[in-house]
């Protein structure tokens, strides 16, 4: 079931020294909808995610999240509004335990900037929230291991668990399947499918099997521009998309 539009992007641009990485991109994502963005390497997909999460300032355009203009907000403020993101390159605290990674994420919901005294591990709400997030990605039994000791696939799961611990309404997932084996990938696809029920997800992914399995809506980007947007079946039948893909890379839809 899909709800209202939670994210509305209009005319978003990002130029790096005259080169447009993201060029006049418009799209919207609804709650309960999984919106996948695909395109050849260098199409500007990761840049798009960075613009939406606030890691990069856009050159122009507008981003409305729940009808609020967030274009000027820094990443931490966007996180508090309900936007969570994962990174293409695994981006977790390798030296911390798995639980601590998530606990820290949960702690951010109750900023204790001036709490310099009580032991961080004595806040049961946050520990609970962290454990729930770990359970959601099936990492509960690894809670006390150091993140460094996890397999690549498990680290990717932890990355998502950290997002979940902040209870986001919109998840921006940047190639969550990158570098995973078939079995790990299938587990991750199932996980993302489950997450999409109650949230909005913007997914950037190269694995076309996974994309067509998961996506409700597809946006195809080429050279920073949106080439086409539509239901998976429409995109599959789109001649322009086929020729763009065949013309610029070897990937097959």
């Amino acid at each position: 079931m899909t709800g209202g539009e939670i994210l509305k992007v209009r005319g978003l641009c990002k130029t790096f020294g005259g080169l447009a990485a993201v060029d006049d991109v418009s799209l919207q994502v609804r709650t309960g909808e999984l919106h996948a963005v695909i395109g050849p390497n260098g199409a500007g997909k990761t840049t798009l995610i960075n613009l939406l999460s606030g890691d990069l300032p856009p050159s122009s355009g507008s981003i409305l999240f729940r009808d609020q203009d967030i274009i000027k907000l820094p990443p931490e403020r966007r996180s508090h509004l309900g936007i969570g993101r994962s990174y293409q390159k695994t981006n977790i605290f390798l030296g911390f335990t798995v639980l601590e990674n998530c606990r820290l994420a949960a702690q951010s919901r109750a900023p204790r900037l001036l709490n310099w005294w009580r032991d961080a591990l004595s806040y049961n709400d946050e520990l609970e929230q962290a454990r729930r997030a770990l359970a959601a990605v099936a990492l509960a039994d690894r809670a006390d291991d150091v993140a460094l000791a996890l397999s690549h696939g498990e680290q990717r799961q932890l990355e998502i668990a950290m997002c979940l611990a902040t209870d986001p309404q919109l998840l921006l997932l940047d190639e969550p399947l990158a570098g995973m084996g078939t079995e790990e990938s299938q587990k991750m696809v199932e996980l993302i499918g489950r997450l999409a029920d109650a949230r909005a997800i913007l997914l950037v992914e190269h694995d076309m099997d996974a994309v067509f399995q998961l996506a409700d809506v597809l946006t195809v980007m080429v050279n920073g521009k949106v080439l086409a947007t539509g239901a998976p079946a429409e995109i599959r039948a789109n001649h322009e998309v086929q020729s763009a893909y065949l013309g610029s890379s070897d990937e097959i839809l």
Partner: peptide, 10 residues
């Protein structure tokens, strides 16, 4: 350890 990640989790 990772300032960027800290900002993105809020």
């Amino acid at each position: 350890l990772n300032e960027q990640r800290m900002r993105s989790i809020g």
